[in-house]
Amino acid sequence: MIDKSLIDYWYEKLKKEAEESGYFLNPDEEFTKSLIEGLLINQERFGYFACPCRLASGNKEEDLDIICPCDYRDQDINDYGNCYCGLYVSYDVYTGKKQIKSIPERRNLKKKKREITISTLKLSLPVWRCKICGYLCAREEPPEICPICKAKKERFERFI
């Protein structure tokens, strides 16, 4: 059992962090808190916030893309109005103009990776992309923590 005060603490923390960076937590407080409880249970089980609505392997490497906020959040909010578990929602859902719904899992769907070939481009530094929020930066290595969404270094990919 997760202590109620801990759930409340994380609810306030995630809500504040989301709103500061242009995201919105699901306004259905009871539902949202049940998801946060799931995240905290997974934190106890695995040591990280694995998505409460996905079966985590327990191997952090394998689960990186589904550590909340997951790699699929932004695309799902764009396409459906909420992320897969329903923790994060679009502005329209937040303001009650749209309802949240259970959406298809995009994780395992094989899709062609978008590739850009820039053969003539010579860069003095590699460009790194935060897989959570899309932040780009040109430097030798990704930052320890994304300055925009606070994702850890491990969530960055080499973009160019």
């Binding site: 049940s34 409880e37 799931g38 995240l39 249970i41 997974n42 609505c53 079966l55 578990c85």
Partner: peptide
């Protein structure tokens, strides 16, 4: 289902 999942609970 998953015990932690909100949609499963619904």
């Amino acid at each position: 289902a998953l015990s932690t999942c909100g949609w499963c609970r619904k």
